[in-house]
Design a protein around this nucleic acid. Structure first.
Lengths: 335, 335
DNA sequence: TTGTACGCGTTATCAT
DNA sequence: ATGATAACGCGTACAA
């Protein structure tokens, strides 16, 4: 069949079809600019030679790759997995592809990954949160790489996200309205994580507005176990009647720990989550949490980034969060 | 600062450092082949001009992109999210980047995505399962694109996976040993999904080996609700004492449905899962399931693919699965 | 509508 | 150790 490993080039196709390379190129990139008859010949030639364009050459000549990069903390967190999934699906098939890199919640590593993706020709970037060195933003601007920030909101840059602080504030309102006054929080690690910080801040401030304070805060790494251990430690203070968690995984871990401690939720203790991922409706009782439209967000981010890459302007999108009252909250005071 | 939008090129750096472009190129790609003194000058020039190589040009000239492609059904399935996460992290930072595409369990779409990734210059591919048109394999071979198959095992191609059928067979053995004889299965959609088919086949054959048959099979789409509905339908036959599920999500859905039906697990019914993802230890009772080393698999796949891309041979890796006995299994017969 | 010819930024071969 | 210089495959003015 094929005598050599070499692939057909534009020139081969042109020769085969008896036209110039320019015409072949046109036929591929803007078919309407070439006569139907020649288009026919070229199409046949392409098929006959099993031609497919060389990526490097195309990128070099056109100065575009059609590659969009995304740097996220980790795909192990369902929140990012879902968002990225939706983001990728919202990208026009064939026009753009998604290059993903994870940084494990490490800002330095994030910077490296961003540089790596840009070096690999990313036409645009999807990033998580706002918290990064100004010089990085300057570099991005200098390199003229458009980007969209997600999973948070702010008053600068382009973003498709939501208000972490407000979401938590709403949850605190619910807990307070229930009558709770002795409230503690299990937060994700806040170092280099503005989403976690905003959620913690949302709790602190809402409480302060009512003249209250947190009865305890545990800052733990993402994971079921982190949530469980934090719960056990926090509950040394048995006067606590409600524990709000920075995310659903932490909450699920806390719930499991509560169960192991022989506590009945929500009779003995109220536990709340944040994100409303799948596990929130698998726990028993199901988790009261803050719903975040992760998929919708990924989709909006994809749309925005495309516009930016194609030189159009694009407004930021602030998505609403919503309290989902399920089974892990109740007034304090046991039965 | 910068008067124009143009970026520094190799030539600019060469001029600035007073050497030739060839030397600069060498300095970047094999620093040890250039004298320390000139290396110094070049390094300074690079920094001074804020130079970074043009991806397209590099790819064109070197015939390599450093991009690895992966096509998976969806990142919404934690199994793939974790595997891909591990895969990506096992890739040498800076040397390779990961291009991900999802196909939603659709073989046609998978083919398109594969072609798209190859068109984008992927040096190698990570694919899920073995089940695809022979012509696609032929095309991949012709294009000389190395690939590794995961989440399954077989006797052809390079793979880093596990034996779905054997995993299920082991689970059936456990259920049978417990004394169950009226067994039903909730399977994922088997169309175009050899992993789901292998799991179903594992159940069927193990049962047949003991002269038994399935008391019911429901084939449902991935998701909590699918598992729940299937459970409800299957349990119309109250003689059933055990339901094995094709994956943990289906099992979690079944468990929830059982709870809503007022059934006590495992007293009234045994329910088992497959994969051992996080939710398996969040349900109440925790799920008895088949553990699959998804992260380890992703890691092995990354190592294999790198070797293949770099022209070395590489043995396939068959990872072991393991039964995890937790709380959803018990002998039949209620209390 | 189609063809000519040059430029894109690197890599790599071959001298020196 | 370093320098010329020829590919690499495609896009795109510009001309015809």
């Amino acid at each position: 069949m094929d005598e050599t490993t070499a692939h057909a080039t534009l020139e081969d196709v042109a020769a085969f079809a008896g036209v110039s390379t320019a015409t072949v190129s046109r036929c591929i990139n803007s078919p309407d600019r070439v006569a139907p008859a020649t288009r026919e010949k070229i199409t046949n030639a392409i098929r006959a030679l099993n031609y497919s364009p060389n990526f490097g050459a195309k990128a070099l000549a056109s100065r575009r790759t059609g590659i969009i990069g995304a740097v996220i903390p980790t795909l192990e967190n369902a929140v990012f997995a879902h968002g990225i999934d939706a983001f990728e699906r919202a990208l026009p098939q064939g026009k753009y592809s998604l290059l993903v890199a994870s940084c494990g919640y490490d800002l330095n590593r994030e910077k490296q990954q961003i540089e790596s993706l840009v070096a690999r020709g990313a036409d645009g970037l999807l990033l998580v949160g706002f918290d990064r060195d100004p010089s990085l933003y300057a570099w991005l601007a200098h390199r003229r790489v458009p980007f969209v920030l997600a999973w948070a909101s702010g008053d600068s840059h382009h973003f498709a996200g939501f208000d972490n602080k407000a979401g938590m504030a709403a949850m605190i309102r619910l807990v307070l309205d229930l009558g709770h006054r002795k409230i503690a929080m299990i937060s994700g690690l806040t170092d280099g994580n503005d989403r976690a910080r905003a959620r913690l801040e949302g709790v602190r401030q809402s409480l302060a507005d009512r003249g209250l304070g947190l009865c305890g805060v545990a800052e733990v790494p993402y994971g079921l176990d982190g949530g469980g251990q934090a719960f056990t430690e926090l509950m040394v203070d048995r006067s606590i009647t409600a524990i709000v968690c920075g995310n659903d995984v932490l909450a699920a871990g806390a719930l499991r720990a509560a169960h192991h401690m022989g506590l009945v939720v929500p009779r003995d203790i109220t536990i709340t989550g944040f994100d409303d991922i799948d596990i929130a409706s698998i726990t028993l009782p199901e988790l009261t949490t803050v719903r975040v439209p992760h998929a919708r967000m990924g989709q909006e981010a994809a749309l925005m980034l495309q516009r930016l890459i194609e030189g159009q302007e694009s407004e930021s999108v602030l998505l609403p969060t919503e309290i989902v009252e399920r089974g892990t909250h109740a007034p304090p005071g046991g039965r």
